[in-house]
Design a binder for these strands. Structure first.
Lengths: 328, 328
DNA sequence: TTGAAAGCGATACCAG
DNA sequence: CTGGTATCGCTTTCAA
């Protein structure tokens, strides 16, 4: 592959001159410029960005780590953050951990070696080793989805505790007394713990208590299975708060299979405002989460940290909107 | 940031020796090794991959260009391809064009400058300038979603003509006689042209002809609006083939608004087997497209081309499965 | 207006 | 077993 050197030889000038032409620097004679440009197209020269990056000590690269891209939250998030980073002239190095936690550590290290300027990490948990890996990172890390602010890690989070609280209020306002929660694995602070705690808090405020706290994974199928199991154990259930819309969609199916109408005998609430929620029958009442804004804000916050600014913000908490549909 | 040089100074050895320790090369005295390792952790040395890449003339980087990541096809595709590339030790540089065609050209160029080893391009069209940009690319490009094989561009495609043909057969088998098509912009060969042409071919074979060919975009909303408009124009419609499931979901809503039951008076078919299709009511009959396999195959084919193999394959055509549900 | 040379951070060959 | 040196492809002073 042709290099500056080759172009210089063909054009009969020095590398410096070729460099000047390429970078449109002023102070090159017109004739020389043309000679060089001819040489460039003649040998199909393509500037080597790797060499430039090394020389300039600047990569314009941002690393993004996600558990998987085919989820509502991450797909919209990635679209959001790329649109911001694009405008800032940054390029995105994308890594999917495919749900293997230990890969998060690996990629933080790899990205540091690749001299990215910052990292956006979509997390589903936050343990000691991960916090440590983030803290020893040489480049700023912005967390999305989990709150790392107590460890001084800038974070973009949704208002998970309050969404639980609001869910409790919406369900009790509709007359529910026996309310259960279907969450995910317990180490997911944001999705399982905070949302359920907020719910419990609201119930307590209304002199009620949580009927059950079930756990499955993020799939529709799991929502179905889990709901089926708990509905047979707790036949008195009249309200279910599901940690995500997909789980709720599964739960709705389980309820219907029992010959019960979701939204009447049993109210159901999800979280996220997944497109599925508007399309299923009965349509799912939920909370709109601004996943695209989460990505955008993560990108903006990271850009500030890269420019050694934005240190006054420890986290951004995104609000949500109640979406009223048929199930509650 | 500390470099080999700094480590060498601290340890009191030469850069060569430090390099040997880092790369675990044999032939270093135990004592020296320990000295060096101490120096490394002392100054927090992190190997510079940019320098390595320049020296080794190898980046292990693959560029991926998508119109947007938050679509069923691309999100699943990216998950599929990252899992394959991961195993091959390749990293992914991701670019979203946010539907701006001209960005495809830009990114092909940028990726070439970044010395990626290959490019996977999710295309929604294929015009002369794009073909040209691909052909002058110094690194192999694999196309996904559109067929570039006639231009000698290796491609992963779904069997779009045959899916149209099969749709025609499924609809006529259910007794439909007045069948319309709702597609997207006309320059989308795969999604609009091929699917509609296959449909027309099947109808012709059954002594029928296409009632209408409507065009909108990829959104549910557009499917709804377009269906509404054409149903009022063509009241005799008894079958609609939609280019995607999302469009079909919108169409179903429009049909229901007219007091008609989708699946009875008017049959509906979509394409893709989006999760929405199984969740909406009535559930949508469709065709399962293996979007994850498309990504995996693109990655595999690209890896072969990177290794100067796989030249015997000009394209991979992925098959589909009929998904029978309530609307047809 | 142009060129020579140093240097970014690593590797690899050749000496010693 | 270890060190010196050239090199990857580019930018950037400093001289001419």
């Amino acid at each position: 592959m042709a290099s500056l050197h080759d172009v210089a030889l063909i054009a009969g000038v020095s590398k410096s001159t070729v460099s000047r032409v390429i970078n449109d620097e002023y102070g090159v004679k017109g004739a020389t410029k043309i000679k060089v440009q001819k040489a460039i197209s003649e040998c199909g020269y393509i500037p080597n960005q790797v060499a430039k990056d090394l020389k300039s000590q600047k990569t314009n690269l941002v690393g993004v780590i996600v558990p998987r891209v085919s989820s509502h939250a991450t797909a919209l998030g990635v679209d959001g953050l790329t649109s911001i980073l694009d405008k800032a002239g940054k390029h995105v190095l994308l890594a999917s951990t495919h749900q293997e936690h230990q890969k998060e550590l690996e990629y933080i290290q790899i990205f540091n070696q690749k001299r990215v300027e910052g990292i956006i990490l979509y997390a589903t948990h936050l343990d000691k080793t991960l916090v440590n890996a983030i803290q020893i990172s040489n480049v700023p890390v912005v967390l999305v989805g989990q709150d790392g602010s107590m460890h001084n890690i800038p974070s973009i989070v949704h208002d998970d505790y309050r969404v639980g609280y609001e869910a409790g209020n919406r369900l009790t306002a509709k007359g529910c007394k026996k309310i259960g929660f279907i969450g995910v694995q317990g180490d997911d602070l944001a999705v399982d713990r905070l949302r359920s705690q907020g719910l419990a808090q609201a119930l307590e405020f209304n002199q009620l208590s949580l009927l059950f706290h079930a756990r499955g994974d993020f799939s529709i199928e799991s929502g179905y299975e889990t709901a089926k199991e708990y509905l047979s154990k707790f036949t008195e259930t009249d309200g279910i708060f599901c940690a995500t819309d997909r789980i709720a969609v599964g739960a709705i199916r389980a309820i219907q299979e029992n010959g019960i109408t979701p939204g009447k005998e049993i109210k159901v609430l999800g979280v996220g405002n997944d497109e599925l929620a508007s399309v299923c029958t009965p349509s799912l009442s939920t909370f709109n989460y601004a996943f695209d804004k989460a990505g955008e804000n993560a990108a903006k916050l990271l850009l500030e940290r890269i420019n050694n600014q934005g240190f006054e913000m420890s986290k951004v908490v995104l609000t949500f909107q109640n979406i009223e549909r048929e199930t509650c």
